[in-house]
């Protein structure tokens, strides 16, 4: 049954697998001569003297290199993650959460003078205007506690704000 089916298959018919192409007479011998002439112009490289079963010995590094590479990769990923968390302040050594590195450490590490020098301004700059300095001086001289309270009431400053200022 299967054999009948095979016979019916057009691709399994008679001469289909035979080679229908031809070549000029004497082609193969002349081609071989041409190839030999070509390769004789190429310098002979001495063949490698190893057999298939004498493949170079696989050393310690051959087996452990992938493991080292994977460990290094995990190390890099962990380092990057740790560094990122340190910078964003989401992780501290004691496990508590703090603000950003800048806000957390700036007050510890920088004095007021340094901040001002970084901002490139001076106290004089803050009070550069003569008018402002005069006003402050006059206020200091003339305002009593009642005046200040009245001023704050007029400005609608809440008691909470005042408490926070203190």
């Amino acid at each position: 049954m299967i054999q009948d089916k095979e016979k019916d298959n057009i691709l399994e018919r008679g001469n289909l697998k035979e080679n229908p192409f031809g070549v000029p007479s004497g082609y193969f011998s002349s081609m071989q001569d041409e190839v030999m002439a070509k390769i004789s112009a190429i310098p002979v490289v001495p063949p490698q003297q190893y057999e298939a079963d004498e493949a170079p010995h696989a050393g310690f590094m051959t087996y452990f290199k992938p493991a080292f590479a994977m460990a290094a990769m995990f190390g890099i990923i962990f380092g990057l993650g740790y560094g990122a968390m340190k910078i964003t302040g989401t992780y501290t050594d004691d496990g508590s959460v703090q603000g950003t590195l800048v806000s957390a450490n700036a007050s510890d590490e920088l004095s007021e003078d340094e901040v001002i020098s970084i901002l490139d301004i001076t106290i004089e700059d803050l009070f550069a205007s003569q008018e402002n300095s005069d006003t402050i001086e006059v206020m200091e001289q003339t305002m009593s506690n009642e005046d200040i309270e009245q001023y704050l009431i007029d400005s609608r400053v809440t008691t909470t704000s005042i408490a926070l200022l203190e």
Binding site: M31, I42, Q48, A52
Partner: peptide, 26 residues
């Protein structure tokens, strides 16, 4: 094509010659 086949065959055999020293029977 006979001409194309001849060119490719010859360049292939030259490559075989050039790389045969590295052939490791794998």
């Amino acid at each position: 094509s006979h001409e194309d086949s001849n060119d490719i065959l010859q360049s292939s055999l030259v490559k075989v010659w050039e790389h045969l020293p590295d052939f490791r029977e794998e």
